[in-house]
């Protein structure tokens, strides 16, 4: 799997994501700096990491979404290259217009940092094909702005199209319809607040995150 991890000033999960990709695929991803205008050719995956890009100035993900490299990411996504955004990466994807809606301050106002239960609502996507539909998994979350909101028509559309890939099984951050992971309309872009790269081996508590990367590898390689 030929992968790239995008690195913004303030990203802090870029190396964890790179380790996860290397562990599962046996190949180091290319780390691409936000000021670069080109991505490596023929990528199988573009990963946008968690963190606090640009210090969350203005809105979480707002500045990163307008960075030079994101023009190349948007173009690649349009051509069908798989794009995975985790946590701040999800916020960047909504700000860049690759996913609908917005991620707002958690309803309880607190930073939430714990392991949460998730239901795999869509197991047909390239990101979730290693899970059974409707199965429950657990992954860590760590965010302050994970409260997914969209207008009623958008929520109805994404639910109807089966684009909610992951849903919280309990209250976490106030997200509309408890949405934790969302696909774009062609299914090659996934934004998710939970961190699969932090659940890679037994020492992490569980390996549900590894299964996501394994399924992705199988789908794209």
């Amino acid at each position: 799997m030929k992968a790239a991890v995008i690195v913004f000033p303030g990203s802090n999960c870029d190396r964890d994501l790179a380790v996860a990709i290397r562990e599962v695929s046996g190949r180091d991803p290319t780390m691409v700096w936000h000021g670069d205008s080109e991505l490596p050719a023929r990528l199988d995956l573009i990963a946008i990491p968690g963190g606090f890009s640009y210090g969350d100035y203005l809105r979480a993900g707002a500045m990163a979404a307008r960075s030079r490299v994101m023009r190349a990411v948007v173009e690649a996504a349009g051509k069908g290259v798989p794009v995975l955004g985790v946590c701040n990466g999800f916020q960047v994807l909504t700000e860049a217009g690759l996913l609908p809606g917005a991620l707002m301050r958690n309803a309880g106002l607190s930073f939430v940092c714990r392991t949460v239960g998730l239901r795999v609502e869509n197991s047909q996507s390239i990101f979730t094909n290693s899970f059974a539909a409707g199965s429950d998994i657990v992954l860590p979350v760590a965010h302050h702005d994970g409260n997914y909101q969209a207008d009623a028509a958008t929520l109805e559309r994404i639910e109807g199209e089966g684009r909610v890939a992951l849903r919280y099984t309990g209250e976490v951050n106030g997200s509309a319809n408890a949405i934790a992971g969302l696909l774009n309309d062609s299914g090659n872009v996934l934004g998710m607040m939970p961190h699969p790269e932090r659940a890679l081996e037994p020492a992490h508590g569980n390996c549900d995150g590894r299964r996501l990367f394994e399924g992705l590898l199988e789908a794209v390689a």
Binding site: L58, R66, E95, M104
Partner: peptide, 8 residues
């Protein structure tokens, strides 16, 4: 383009 997120 930047200052407001017109979704919200």
């Amino acid at each position: 383009k930047l200052l407001a997120n017109t979704v919200i």
